[in-house]
Design a binder for these strands. Structure first.
Lengths: 209, 209
DNA sequence: GTAGGTATAACACAATCATGTAATTGACAC
DNA sequence: GTGTCAATTACATGATTGTGTTATACCTAC
């Protein structure tokens, strides 16, 4: 019997998944939880082969839980389960060792197929997720801001993302503090933001840096 | 009708694929060739929605053909078809814009399913291929913060990422400005950063928000 | 019940940031 | 050669942020 544990805060959905998995004669759902607050103990105790992990849960997120599981039990397969794929969470999950990424809208038979594939050492993705992953291999044209930031501004932005203060940026680029201020002001207006944190968030999300 | 063209130098295999695809009422195999020597003219003439491309063919390889197709007709979906995925060819194909990568040992029903997925904008991989792709994401393991941020802190962090000022965060969460300061100070020390931009960059890159 | 973590709040101070205005230089285009 | 734009610098001012210290209340675990 293959031991499977489910984390999913939506009760009805969790039960349906459990029932679905139990239709397979070699699957055994040895635990299913609405939150990941005790994921470490639960892994130690239940020792599953595979975990189905919802990403968005109250309290500890599926991302954190994934990290904790992989740290202590790298052999446990973790398949992420989510409504839709936000890029950062997707790629962060993959980096953290998720074995697959299944969208919740996936049909029951494909769901079962994906679980099977994961257990066979494959890496099941919902096709839309796979497509997103593919894009990173292409030199995807990044959506540009309304007014393009100049090369120099991009340099400044990159340092800002690294957490440099204006003073440090000025030193790094060998320009005056006032020039740094000027550049950053320009960047804000071009990106339509009004503070550093917002600019940094946008820059990372658009893959500008 | 969806026009499909096949490139495959193994004659029996090519015919079986053609027969298989023709079992689907909306697929039309408008061409099938044993080599890719005239792929450009054939694309211009046949204007398929999707091409199934064997990688190893005598004369012009499937890789070259893929490149030629994507240069002139980027809208044509190309699914690579091969015996086993050599890493270089796999990643080169993905970079060149292949829409999927199917192993030849794939069963007929999964083959048809993959074609369907590709046509729907997904990116079908044989699970073993997907697993290989995954590994490239696992180069640098993401480490979690030494001390986990509390749920409340995560809330604050999320607002910070959205570019909220301390004042706005306080209003949003209905707490005092000083409490916001306190939370953010805690976040900084837990994430080992020392300013908002750095914290935001880290949070996004680690998929915390 | 005591310890530890979380959430709350206040006060104070220094550093940093955001935003004006104004001006100079060099590169490139028409 | 004139205009536009990027990059540079300066000065000024008010708002925001980062960091101390201190304190209360609540919950959980042992």
């Amino acid at each position: 019997m293959i031991r499977i544990v489910i984390y999913e805060d939506n009760d009805p959905l969790r039960r349906s998944m459990q029932l679905l998995l139990m239709t397979h004669s070699s699957y055994e759902v040895t635990g299913s939880f609405g939150h990941a607050g005790r994921v470490e103990e639960e892994m130690d105790l239940l020792q599953p082969e595979l975990v189905i992990m919802d990403i968005d849960m109250p309290g500890r997120s599926g991302m954190e839980a994934l990290q904790l599981i992989k740290q202590k039990h790298p052999e446990i397969l973790v398949v992420m389960h989510t409504v839709f794929g936000e890029d950062e969470k997707l790629f962060a999950s993959l980096c953290m060792g998720a074995s697959g990424y299944i969208l919740k809208k996936t049909s029951p038979d494909k769901f079962m197929q994906y679980i099977q594939e994961a257990l066979e050492g494959g890496a099941p993705f919902s096709p839309l997720i796979a497509s997103r992953v593919l894009q990173t291999f292409r030199q995807q044209p990044v959506q540009q801001p309304d007014f393009p930031v100049s090369p120099r501004e991009l340099q400044v932005l990159a340092l800002l993302v690294k957490g440099y203060s204006y003073k440090l940026i000025a030193a790094e680029l060998k320009i005056s503090l006032d020039t740094v201020r000027k550049h950053i002001g320009q960047i804000y207006s071009k990106l339509h933001v009004s503070c550093g944190t917002e600019a940094v968030a946008l820059a990372i999300r658009r893959g500008m840096v």
